[in-house]
């Protein structure tokens, strides 16, 4: 692989959108495919290209065996994102942990004292009410939304925006009782039981977390379980 091609691959990866790298395992020729681009020295005829396309549609990296060549198709999905609402103490553990797990993290809090670069270095911060900020972030199927403030004035609008999106995970910090009250409030906003069940509350896997860092582990464990479709993701 030439350095210039590696740089293009890196750019594609940094763009956070989906793509594929196709490598002829015999000759080493390669082609990079993204929504916008098809670059590289690997040429494929129509039939070969159709087989590569199928591997990409399956969204699974794999070797495609062809009569005269063996081609490795490496497929990657769009980046995972985490929207954290509330720059509270737990968020200070959650944000770095989520970054370690590969998430692009955005922290939303209308209170500048909480969403500060001092508390969250090298983090994308939005000092804005969630009813404005969360819809603007356009949560999609690769996005998790977590609310941590305990304050309905801040958490509820974020949850409402998340419920109107395809976010793969929605979680709200707070006790069982708080969560019941939250469900009642959201129910009055017109969300039915199926919608309300999308909100994981109390948030996180039940690992007996006590400290902010332990709660962060419990939250990221649950998000991972949902992402990977683990049986642990299903609540009794």
């Amino acid at each position: 692989m030439k350095l210039a091609f590696l740089e293009q691959l890196l750019d594609a990866s940094r763009s956070r959108s989906a793509g594929a790298l196709v490598t002829d395992l015999g000759s080493g020729a390669q082609r990079l495919l993204t929504l916008q681009h098809s670059v590289g020295d690997l040429s494929l005829d129509d039939e070969q290209f159709a087989r590569v396309r199928r591997a990409i549609d399956e969204d699974r990296s794999q070797i495609v065996a062809m009569p005269t060549r063996e081609v490795f198709v490496e497929v990657w999905s769009a980046a995972l994102r985490l929207i954290v609402v509330g720059g509270v103490h737990t968020a200070q553990s959650l944000v770095p942990l989520a970054k370690l797990l590969g998430y692009d993290v955005t922290l939303v809090d209308p209170r500048a004292a909480f969403a500060s670069a001092f508390r969250f270095p090298d983090t994308s911060l939005i000092i804005e009410w969630p009813e404005v900020a969360v819809p603007r972030l356009e949560p999609d199927r690769r996005t998790a939304v977590v609310t941590l403030t305990h304050n309905p004035r801040i958490d509820d609008p974020a949850l409402i925006a998340a419920l109107r999106s395809e976010a793969f995970y929605i979680g709200a910090l707070g006790s069982r009782r708080t969560h019941e009250q939250r469900r009642e409030r959201l129910g009055r906003e017109g969300f039915d039981a199926a919608a309300l069940n999308r909100v994981h509350g109390p948030i996180g896997l039940a690992i007996g977390a006590m400290t902010p860092a332990e709660i962060a582990v419990s939250i990221m464990a649950e998000i991972t379980a949902v992402l990977r479709r683990s049986p642990l993701a299903v609540r009794a």
Partner: peptide, 13 residues
């Protein structure tokens, strides 16, 4: 940053 991105980034550097 994903694992792959980190590896590719270091390799390029």
């Amino acid at each position: 940053m994903s694992d792959s991105e980190q590896v590719l980034s270091e390799a390029a550097a």
